[in-house]
């Protein structure tokens, strides 16, 4: 997993609420057995016509946002299925952070496992960032994970919350499984205890 420390990049505005994982990556692209290569199909049905031509009005097709690294999105981003293909597709396109008022639970978790930072801010601050994002490619937003701040192109700074364990893993690009395996003895003793308390499991 790539580290996430500080990012200054183009933010694409997607004010729609309830953007679900079927919109982020439609199911016909879930038939892969790899993690990479999904970026070209990110938001496929909003981004391309049925015969594969780009829909010019869609934000990521506009010249200003083709290299976006941040999404500013409406409420409840990433709702729907548990597919990790959604963050894989975002990452493969180049998105490293999302800013919204709220996320669906599983999607939120999945982001951290893939080096994407999902930031929660209050509605009024998301609105300011949404307006900033609408200014196009010259308006670069800065996200500093160490200091937990988002800064607009004109220098307004907003603090955000992030779980300390997740922050640590993201800053250092750490793999959860490796960390958990260091606690194997705790798991062993739990299993022994459970085998006497609930032997039918």
């Amino acid at each position: 997993m790539d580290k996430f420390t500080k990012l200054t990049g183009i933010a694409a505005p997607m004010p729609l609420v309830n953007i679900d994982t079927d919109m982020i990556i439609p199911k016909q692209f879930l038939k892969t057995i790899a993690r990479t290569g999904l970026g070209k199909n990110l938001f496929d049905e909003m981004r391309y016509t049925q015969d594969g031509a780009e829909i010019p009005g869609f934000v990521l097709n506009q010249p200003a946002y083709r290299k976006a690294e941040i999404l500013v999105a409406g409420d409840n981003f990433g709702c729907g299925s548990s597919r990790e293909h959604a963050p894989w597709a975002l990452l493969d396109f180049g998105i490293r952070a999302v800013i919204s008022t709220s996320y669906a639970d599983i999607f939120y978790n999945n982001c951290f496992k893939n080096g994407i930072l999902p930031i929660v801010l209050p509605a009024d601050q998301v609105a300011i960032l949404m307006d900033d994002a609408k200014k196009g490619a010259n308006a670069r937003v800065t996200i500093d994970l160490e200091s937990q701040t988002v800064t607009t192109s004109d220098g307004q700074s907003f603090p955000f919350e992030v779980d300390s364990h997740r922050k640590h893993c993201l800053l250092n690009g750490l793999d959860d499984i490796g960390l958990t395996l260091e606690k194997a003895s705790a798991i062993d003793s739990f299993e022994k205890k459970a085998a006497t308390l609930r032997p039918w499991v």
């Binding site: 548990s82 499984i177 194997a184």
Partner: peptide, 12 residues
């Protein structure tokens, strides 16, 4: 759970 977590549960 997501696929990374599937791997986590398989392993641990």
């Amino acid at each position: 759970i997501g696929t990374s977590e599937v791997e986590h549960v398989l392993a641990t």
